[in-house]
């Protein structure tokens, strides 16, 4: 029982991180309707910016974190301006965008690896202080991950509900023409979507990297967690993304309990395939998908 409770507690923390990843990915997938593979690159760049700031330039931790998120945002927006936007303007098909995005990911991640090396970089040294909750143990870093994740995700939901611009972003995915028709600033919204998505990727990356370190090739994993969470939960429902993320975290926790963490990918992608087959609109989406064609 104690083991199970401990795993559930860990799953709750992981759910916070997965939710961040899901919101960052979902923002773009929902509003732009394309599969943003380079999201994984933003994730990697943010943490390596912290590595550069802290270990090479000797910045203090808090300044480094700011630099990390900022550079992540810069990378995300730059990738949009240099690749996606021009491609979309020239009428590129989803397949072309997907491959360009894949190319961007490969390019960026290997550029990072070229500069910093392929091995894992540890960001925080020493043993994390931990707290006891009865028989359960939680580290300080886990508390931070839990709080940062859930506060950001909930806060963002409140903003989406109140702010007109954010509502516009939400409406964008459904009826792209509506946005221009309502006279909302399209360019600004696009900028905002990419920037916000990068913030979520960056924060998720940093709270993970500060805990277990970072290597250049985890970006793909982060992207896939985010993407699977969004698709499993349901693209059209914000809390569906969170639900998908939590479900993944929970099932991975259960997998650790029953088998071992080595089988995590089997769980993640098994859920993905089963969901797509039997409930393509997502587990938490009430509405059936509109009829195609």
């Amino acid at each position: 029982m104690i083991l199970l409770s401990q795993l559930l507690l860990n799953a709750l923390v992981n759910a916070a991180i997965f939710s961040l990843l899901a919101v960052g990915f979902g923002l773009i997938y929902r509003s732009m309707r394309f599969f943003y593979i380079a999201y994984g690159a933003v994730y990697v760049i943010a943490s390596y910016a912290v590595v550069a700031a802290m270990q090479i330039s000797g910045f203090p931790l808090y300044l480094s974190i700011g630099a990390g998120v900022f550079l992540g945002v810069l990378a995300g927006v730059l990738m949009d301006r240099t690749v996606y936007l021009p491609l979309e303007r020239s009428g590129a098909t989803p397949g072309v965008l997907l491959i360009a995005s894949l190319g961007l990911y490969i390019l960026a991640v290997n550029a990072v690896a070229l500069i910093f090396g392929n091995e894992v970089k540890i960001l925080s040294r020493g043993i994390e202080p931990s707290f006891s909750l009865g028989p359960l143990v939680i580290t300080r870093m886990q508390v931070i991950q839990f709080l940062v994740g859930w506060i950001l995700v909930t806060g963002f939901w409140l903003i989406i509900r109140k702010n007109t611009l954010m509502k516009g972003i939400w409406a964008m995915g459904e009826t792209p023409n509506l946005v221009t028709a309502l006279g909302l600033p399209c360019g600004l919204m696009r900028l905002l979507v990419f920037a916000l998505s990068s913030v979520f990727a960056g924060v998720a990356s940093l709270v993970t990297a500060l805990d277990v370190g970072i290597d250049p090739h985890v970006g793909m994993h982060a992207l896939l967690i985010g993407a699977v969470a969004v698709i499993v939960g349901g693209v059209d429902v914000y809390w569906g993304w969170i639900g998908g993320a939590s479900l993944l975290a929970l099932l991975q926790g259960m997998a650790v309990w029953q088998f071992s963490s080595r089988w995590n990918d089997l769980i993640t992608f098994g859920i993905l395939i089963i969901t797509l087959l039997f409930r393509p609109q997502g587990l938490f989406s009430p509405r059936k998908r509109r009829e195609e064609r």
Binding site: L87, S90, G103, L104, L107
Partner: peptide, 13 residues
């Protein structure tokens, strides 16, 4: 790998 990535992007354009 970087060249592969760059090639893909360039080709898509």
């Amino acid at each position: 790998q970087m060249i592969y990535g760059l090639t893909l992007i360039t080709l898509m354009f």
